[in-house]
Amino acid sequence: MNACVVVPAYNEEKRIGEVLAELVKLEIPIVVVDDGSSDETAQVAGRFNVIVARHMVNLGQGAALRTGTELAMKLGFETIMHFDADGQHDVEIIRPMLDALAKNEHDVIFASRFLGEKLVMPTYKKVILIAAKIFGRVFLQIKFTDPQSGLRAFTAAAYHSLRWRANDFRHCTEILINVARSDLRWRELPTIVRYDSYSTAKAKRPQMRMAWKMLMEALFR
């Protein structure tokens, strides 16, 4: 399978080494996009057998993923997977997701934290995600179980339909909306996301501001 894993990274020098050490074991080409980090993220990534693209300035995770995806497609990869650099995502899910995509029955595969046997995450996060799920269903008409899934795999052909414009974290929801409004065939697979003090501190996002922006976009787009 001609697949590539895209890893967006912003100031992840402490964690990206561990993540890439696990990822390279899978022997799948990896594109790391250093999103204008002020630390040694790009240098740490460069020690591994990966392709490193660098943003001159910090644009946001959505923009970094777009850069990585477009680079992967330019390099001829037909399947693209998005994977976080902070160590939250489970490497074990990559093969099943790519295998599911290889069957040609689906165009996009999402990993969902809500399909596993047990929902392991901090309570505040659980509350926010459940609220976001209801918000997404009511205002955005998206029926995915995980409203902020950042772990996804898709075919290069599907990219044109799901191409996101948001440079920041809103790309997660925008991709779900684009998929829901397109003819793309999608499926969710269960995953467990690891939350530790590092990733929790990194993931602090302006949730209310994001929700407001998404609502405005949904209403006036």
Partner: peptide, 18 residues
């Protein structure tokens, strides 16, 4: 425009390196 410029530069540089 800035985002487009930064992204295009990043893709082209990495592609040329590869």
């Amino acid at each position: 425009d800035l985002a487009q410029m930064v992204q295009t530069k990043a893709v082209d540089e990495a592609f040329n390196l590869v």
